[in-house]
């Protein structure tokens, strides 16, 4: 709805083509996630890009990986089990921004998500082929909405064919539960979301 509002009230649109390296986070209060971390969030890193199809709208796509884990100890003399949880989140969506001068561009973004969750449990992490290794994986879908601000230096300003930008956005993400086989199910995030990154623009 915010996208529609911007599209109808702002006249100076100019989405850049861009390639980004990003950091992000997605809130996760699912109890199953407590096996891996006490953190109620899933920090992630990834890559993204925007293809400006229209002067006001671009198509975005990207990939983020989150990985958290813990060593579980059972009694005093028991060796640890390492339990790790990874998510690979692939997003595809639309982005619209508005130019406030040449450098500032507030934006909104809405994306659909495809999330692959993987859990690895290993009785002996020092042995890459130990018999105590368990791996379960599953797929789910979701959605992500962000609103943020881009600070850009265009190539024209610095006489280069490429420009640079930094962006940060806040929003909300929803992801369905992932079935991890015999380990159980887990919800790989849902709630407050943020993403920030550095981009090459052209």
């Amino acid at each position: 709805m915010l996208t529609t509002l911007l599209l109808t009230t702002v006249s100076a649109w100019a989405v850049d083509h861009e390639v980004s390296g990003e950091l992000g986070t997605l809130r996760n209060t699912d109890r199953a996630y407590d096996v891996y971390t006490s953190l109620n969030a899933m920090p992630s890193r990834g890559l993204g890009g925007t293809l400006a199809l229209h002067e006001r709208v671009g198509v975005t796509g990207g990939w983020h990986r989150s990985s958290r884990g813990s060593e579980l100890y059972f009694g005093d003399d028991s060796p640890a089990v390492v339990a790790a949880f990874y998510t690979d989140t692939f997003d595809l969506g639309v982005k619209a921004d508005v130019a406030l001068g040449d450098m500032l561009r507030p934006y909104v973004q809405a994306s659909g998500l495809l999330v692959r969750g993987v859990s690895r449990v290993d009785d002996d992490p020092s042995d890459p082929v130990s018999v105590g290794q368990i791996k379960e994986a599953g797929l789910t879908g979701g959605a992500l909405g962000l609103a943020g601000l881009t600070l850009r230096i265009s190539g024209d300003r610095i006489n280069l064919p490429l420009g640079f930008s930094v962006h940060a956005g806040l929003g909300y993400g929803y992801v369905g539960r992932v079935d991890l086989g015999d380990l159980g199910t887990i919800k790989p995030g849902g709630g407050f979301a943020s993403r920030a990154g550095l981009s090459l623009i052209f």
């Binding site: 958290r68 884990g69 579980l72 100890y73 059972f74 990874y86 992490p125 890459p128």
Partner: peptide, 17 residues
């Protein structure tokens, strides 16, 4: 870089069960 593989599983915390 992706942080996968059996010999470098992430383990940022310890829990005692």
């Amino acid at each position: 870089l992706a942080g996968c593989g059996w010999n470098n599983l992430p383990a940022q915390e310890n829990y005692y069960v």
